[in-house]
Design a protein around this nucleic acid. Sequence first.
RNA 1: GUGGGAAUAGCUCAGCUGGUUAGAGCAUCGGAUUGUGGUUCCGGGGGUCGGGGGUUCGAAUCCCCUUUCCCACCCCA
Length: 414
Amino acid sequence: MPALQPVRGTHDILPEEILRHRHVEEVARATSALYGFAEIETPIFEFTEVFARTLGDTSDVVTKEMYTFEDRGGERLTLRPENTAGVARAFISGGLSQRLPLKLFYRGPMFRYERPQKGRLREFHQVGVELFGVADPIADVEVIALGDQFLETLGLKHRVRCELNTLGDMESRRAYRERLVAYLRDFRDRLSEDSRERLERNPLRILDSKDERDRAIVAGAPAMDEAMTDDARRFFDALRDGLERAGVAYVPNPRLVRGLDYYCHTVFEFITTDLGAQGTVLAGGRYDGLVEQMGGPATPGVGWAAGVERLAMLVETAPEPTRPVAVIPFSAAGAAKGLEITQMLRRAGIAADMGYSGNLQKRMKRADKLGARATVLLGEDELSRGAVSVRDMATGTQEEVPIVGLVDRLAAFG
RNA sequence: GUGGGAAUAGCUCAGCUGGUUAGAGCAUCGGAUUGUGGUUCCGGGGGUCGGGGGUUCGAAUCCCCUUUCCCACCCCA
């Protein structure tokens, strides 16, 4: 194993790249703040049961994708594969149930042991939100509208579409599951191998199978709609009405099913066609039973998570690095003065850099490469008059400025 | 976990059916230009051809193993 290689599925985020990532995170944080969500940070590892119990015994995330290990004290720990379970745990252990409704935003690394592809990594980053304590679909509307505005602010509105579905309440879901399995049993031998497996473990997943044969069979399957209780139906109608009032465009997709066991009622995905098979960029849903299942007070919840790397690949406008002022001495004597002036500028809040070596020409080139807006030139003549020359790097114009007035003059460069 | 493609300089890539010292563009460094950047011109450095083994007089090129990336499936952000 070549040592100087990052672990499979992990990668370094280099300075140019991290500007895009930070931009995605900051837009998410700012948009969440507009909707009243406060930031929370939870540990990147938890006791294994936190995830194993909540995500479901049949989900792939639990059965084959967790980074689980034993620490020196013999505890079974897992690097978080997602953060809803961790935030729900914090909600319970931190006594936050006293402060409902509660809106939380988070960001950070997640870990899944999967086969890497573009937009699919073993360590990746998510931003996400969770809203606890509101059973009314108004909460779902807010959460989805927040996701929609977040993506719009990133300039991605034209590249994603929001797909929406309902899984119904627990009763609807159980009833539908029975109907679906009863129907599919008759076609068992004609289903794909994967789907025969799913028939036992997670039959709803067969609905969004990509296999041609499965699709043909699924086309004739009973619709989720038929098994819906009146309550579940009203919930979904209210959600759709709310989304229209909130100005969120969406496409109903009756075959949208999500993998984690804790979802009920609302499920949604914001999807792009620009990232190959990894088109889901932001996704979530309602998880009313989760907190109670973990041992907390019965508390409804709804939220989503978005993939920072996937979004960063789509975002076209990356913020520019800060452009410094370059301080350039002409001589050894000037270099001492240059240090003083550079520090004076920095303490005044002006980004400044001083070339470390080379002749004048070389330092000018370096200043150009740094993207300097202006250079401060320390010539012997000017210094003898207590002044320096300030060169505007965009226009090439240059003027002499007394050192005492330098900070004010440079502030004008913005 | 299953199936397929790829890996040559910091980056993007040439290198035909195995044949001398492995190339180009960009980047980098130096010079033309020791009080002035972007353009131009000249020159330099940089590669165990992903790693290991095999076939051969001879392997970047053919074979096997391995690592990583990419594509599809599974699944997901």
